[in-house]
């Protein structure tokens, strides 16, 4: 009798343990998540920078083997084969937590691929016609139904920074004289993470018989800044302006050059582009290391936003024009001074 009771007790204990084990297995049996970071397998690489100022948005897809260790005993699958399987590229737009739109991306072939050192076969470009709205949330999906793999990302499009200086008043001139740096001022937009400033100098080349128009860019380094409320400042100018002009503009004997105008361009990127920029700066390799920063689930790359703001028809100060014409660094370029001499 005692023996039978003991056996029953053991049986109950075993059933109890088995039930707990089976309950523990339930959540894992229902998941469809597949880790793409498997040695020898490739990883989708997705780049998408939404541009609220553009009516067409682009997504670039590629793949990489960088997630796994190189194994010389295994034959590597050519990169281009991944695109022989079906895949779906789409985006959802959310406003205050509610889905308001869904956009499908179609293959886009109008942009010529880089034929340089860049391997082009494993890259595809997709486009969709819509204007992202600053402040709205966007969710990006690349779905591979045969593999049951989904690459996804989520961002809030950053709001446009409000540029304070330079102002679009041409009679207030831009001076790059050493000792008088130009201070760019702006109020950052929400979710902005990185900036780059460009002063584009438009000039005219004249020789008897023809006139040509060209431009040269004076570019700042990237500015990583997550501040959203306070006015931001950044200085540009001094000898680096004249060195930059001398490096870009070829000296042509007999040509007469005149600066016609200056255009200010502010490039701003979303928070995730800011994180990518900062991680690249810290590692010392800009936008080349795929393992630096990624905000994609089951993939690599960056999903963020970018905006270009232009202030045209500005003018260089007389002092800068005179230095451009007569300064040691740029006098060989043939620019006229502020009086046209």
């Amino acid at each position: 009798m005692w023996n039978t009771c003991s056996q029953r007790s053991h049986l109950r204990q075993s059933i109890y343990l088995l039930t707990i084990f089976l309950i523990g297995l339930l959540p894992t049996s229902c998941t469809e998540d597949v880790s793409l970071y498997v040695d020898g397998d490739s990883t989708p690489v997705v780049y998408c920078l939404l541009n609220p100022a553009d009516s067409t948005q682009f997504i670039r897809l590629g793949r990489t083997f960088q997630a796994g260790e190189y194994d010389p005993t295994q034959i590597q699958v050519p990169d281009s084969t991944i695109w022989n399987i079906p895949h779906d590229v789409y985006m959802e737009e959310y406003q205050a937590g509610t889905k308001v739109n869904q956009y499908h991306f179609e293959p886009f072939f109008d942009v010529h691929k880089d034929t340089g050192l860049f391997p082009a076969n494993n890259l595809r470009l997709y486009s969709s016609a819509f204007c992202p709205v600053p402040g709205n949330d966007y969710r990006l999906y690349v779905y591979f139904p045969d593999l049951k793999k989904m690459v996804s990302g989520r961002i809030t499009v950053h709001e446009l920074p409000k540029i304070v200086d330079p102002v679009p008043i041409s009679i207030r001139r831009i001076n790059f004289e050493p000792g008088q740096p130009f201070t760019i001022r702006w109020f950052p937009g929400t979710n902005t993470g990185v900036y780059q400033m460009i002063f584009r100098v438009h000039y005219r080349d004249s020789i008897p018989g023809y006139v040509e128009f060209h431009q040269a860019d004076y570019v700042s380094g990237g500015l990583y800044n997550m501040e959203a409320n306070l006015m931001q400042e950044s200085n540009l100018g001094g000898p680096s302006f004249f060195t930059s002009m001398a490096a870009q503009i070829p000296a042509i004997p007999g040509v007469v050059r005149e600066v016609t105008s200056v255009e200010f361009i502010m490039l701003s990127g979303g928070r995730d582009l800011g994180f990518l920029y900062r991680s690249d700066v810290e590692r010392g390799n800009l936008f080349t290391n795929l393992e630096n920063y990624s905000n994609l689930v089951n993939g690599l790359g960056v999903f963020s936003s970018k905006v270009e703001q232009h202030i045209p028809n500005l003018m260089l100060a007389e002092v800068t024009l005179d230095l451009l014409a007569r300064g040691e660094t740029t006098k060989h370029l043939g620019f006229r001074d502020s009086k046209g001499q």
Binding site: D165, R173, I174, N175, P181, V319, D322
Partner: peptide
């Protein structure tokens, strides 16, 4: 604008010695 010159004549001819990048801020 805020420009400095070494003479009144230079100032009138816009032959400035130096110029400030003026701002509203």
């Amino acid at each position: 604008q805020l420009n400095v010159a070494q003479s009144i004549d230079s100032l009138n001819r816009k032959d400035y010695y130096s110029a400030a990048n003026v701002s509203d801020y």
